[in-house]
Structure formats: structure tokens, C-alpha cells
Design a protein around this nucleic acid. Structure first.
Lengths: 150, 150
DNA sequence: CGAATGTGCAACCGTTGGGTTGCACTGACC
DNA sequence: GGTCAGTGCAACCCAACGGTTGCACATTCG
């Protein structure tokens, strides 16, 4: 009971842990990744490129040129996805709480961008846990073989 | 809309895909990993070692010696965790559907074991997606800089 | 055979969660 | 200053989920 310690169940009161930056809890991140709509949001954020930023609408002019790599707003995402802006906002809140997304207030709008590094870190953690399990299984098999041989 | 393709949303009818083996859908796996009790189950399965297999009970004799690395039953897990056997059974069903756990019927009992390799594969996939996002962000930043200079 | 252990299915309950609608508010633009 | 786009909060609905209880079925052991 010491190798893989993913959840915060056995964690101490956690007193001196300011909201440093990244992942809150792995399970929260998994819960955030457990929804297809949320994946769609993440993917839309991930391939949000310059030129297709604000998308349709913006009749006045080009407007958001310049800081093109700043991400998308909830409304822009709602334009791309078949759900309400409010639903998107909730999803973005979940994703941000899980540390998978970051938000910046620009003018009167809030731009979100995906944090791929957090995803990568989470993946690496999963990888390590899986490897630990496999290793333990191997060890058990070895012991069993040993016992069999006498 | 071509780099990372985690969910099965945009997937074709998927006609000729027999239940090859492992992971059904990544989102299913994440949903499976999004519960603390399920993590506890996985961990209990992961460090299920010889000697502590059937746990307390078994008054008759040693019984399950031999195939000690075969995994734990739902009842044994229910003995270790503060939930009902039925709850454990449901969790195991979810985990098995997600491809994170495997079951073997021995006598009248069903033994489960954790599939660490699947976890590892899932982690690797996450890692790749995160890296792809980061790469795309870098490319966007480069383009923005180019535009600024031009 | 009878008793015990283990499993599986089904009903049920409380809570969470995705999604919508509606409204109030604030910052930008004419 | 008035209007318009964009956000935020709150209420509400319905489906899914975690969990329990209860019972019926199989299988092993005395």
C-alpha cells in the first residue's frame, strides 16, 4: 500500500498547500476527462488557430487580431459545439478546476486555452502507476514459481 | 481536427472491430478512473499478494494455495473496503468494461486482477495528446510572432 | 442430502451531473 | 447616453451513478 497513491483519500489535512498552479487531484482530472462534450471543448481549444478564433459573428471588423494565440471564449466555443453557452461555461469551470485549462480576461471577455502540459503530466503519472502494478504482478508470479519449486 | 482523436464521437460505424482485447473507449476508462472507491478497488487488486488472498474467513484450511497470483474475488474486496459486496461488484463491472480489470472464474468464485498494462497504455495516450496540444500552441505562437514582425 | 458460502439480478433511494432557460450585470461601441 | 455583445448567477429538469437491501441461483463441503 505504498507504491501507487493516486487519490487524496489517505492524504493529510493538507494545510500549507496554496493553489500553486497545476492539478488539483487526479480523480478530479479523470472526472473532467470522463465526458465527451468536455473532450470536444478541449479539442476545440487545442486546435484553436489564428484566423478562426472568433469564428462567425464579428460583423464589424477583424477585431481580435494580434493576440491570436490567446484562446477561445465560452461563446465562441458554444458556436462550434451543439450545446448552450452555459453548458460550455460549466464544462470550462470543471476543466479549469481540474487544472486542464487556463483562463485570461482580455476585455470584457474571458479567453480559455488548453494546458497540454497538464495532460502530459497526468498521462505520465498513469503510466508510472500501471508500470508499478505490472512490476508487482511480476514479483508475485516469481514468488509463486519459487513456492512451486519448493 | 485531426491530431488528437480521443473519443469515439467522430468515429465511423466501426463495423469490423471484434472485441480484440483491451480498452473499449478512453472516456469510459476515464469515467472508470473518476471514482475514489474504484481506485481503492484497483489498488487492492494491484497489491493483492500471496498469503493474503482470501483474507479472513476460510476456517477450513489454506484452500487457495497454488494459484496465488490469480487475483481477488468481489467478496474478498468487500472485506477490505468499507462498502457492500454489491457495490464492489458494480465497480468491478465498470472496470472490466473499461478494460482495466480482468476476471477469471475459478471454482464457484470469480477472481479479478488489475491490468496495469492498460493503465500504462492509457497514460501514454494522454501523454501524446498533451504533447500534440503543446506543439500546436508553439506553432501558433510562432505564426503570431511572424505576423507581428511582418 | 443438507448447510454454507459465493455469486448474480433486480428494485429502490439519495446525490451528482449535464443541459436548458431566464434574468441581471458589466464593459465596449455608436 | 443608449444599445449591443458577452458574461455570470440561479433555478429547474431529467438521466446517470454510487450504494444498500433483498432474494434467487449455483457450487462446494460436511
Amino acid at each position: 500500500m505504498s507504491s501507487a497513491t493516486p487519490p487524496g483519500s489517505a492524504a493529510p489535512p493538507d494545510p500549507g498547500t496554496p493553489p500553486a498552479s497545476g492539478t488539483a487531484s487526479p480523480v478530479a482530472a479523470f472526472a473532467a476527462l470522463a465526458d465527451e462534450t468536455r473532450w470536444a471543448v478541449l479539442q476545440a481549444l487545442a486546435d484553436a488557430g489564428p484566423g478562426s478564433a472568433a469564428g462567425a459573428g464579428a460583423p464589424g471588423g477583424g477585431a481580435d487580431a494580434g493576440t491570436s494565440a490567446a484562446g477561445l471564449t465560452a461563446s465562441a466555443l458554444a458556436d462550434r459545439l451543439p450545446v448552450t453557452r452555459q453548458a460550455i461555461a460549466k464544462h470550462l469551470a470543471v476543466l479549469e478546476a481540474a487544472g486542464l485549462v487556463e483562463s485570461r480576461i482580455v476585455g470584457r471577455e474571458r479567453r480559455y486555452r488548453a494546458l497540454g502540459a497538464e495532460l502530459t503530466a497526468l498521462g505520465r503519472r498513469l503510466e508510472r502507476i500501471g508500470d508499478a502494478w505490472e512490476a508487482r504482478l511480476g514479483r508475485i508470479a516469481a514468488i509463486a514459481k519459487e513456492l512451486e519449486r519448493g
